[in-house]
């Protein structure tokens, strides 16, 4: 087999294997994402926190004192 053919075979294998690896990893990522329990929603329901108003958690008040 000529060198050029070897290069072509190697490239075909690398390209197809990489795309397959990417697709499988992406699929695994999506599956894991679905399994993870939903994180607590950001505290947006209680209104914007800053620019209009700044809210501190109780421990911050203690820290500020």
């Amino acid at each position: 087999m000529e060198l050029i053919q070897l290069v072509v075979v190697a490239m075909v294998i690398v390209i197809l294997a990489t795309i397959t690896l990417a697709a499988v990893s992406y699929g695994a990522f999506k599956v894991r994402e679905r399994r993870v329990p939903a994180a607590a929603e950001p505290d947006s329901a209680s209104g914007p926190l800053f620019f209009e108003r700044v809210r501190f958690a109780p421990r911050d008040r203690a820290a500020q004192r």
């Binding site: 950001p42 505290d43 926190l49 800053f50 501190f56 958690a57 421990r59 820290a63």
Partner: peptide, 11 residues
């Protein structure tokens, strides 16, 4: 150092 309830990086 200030703490706040979680609202994401932008917040």
């Amino acid at each position: 150092v200030v703490g706040k309830s979680n609202s994401g990086k932008a917040g």
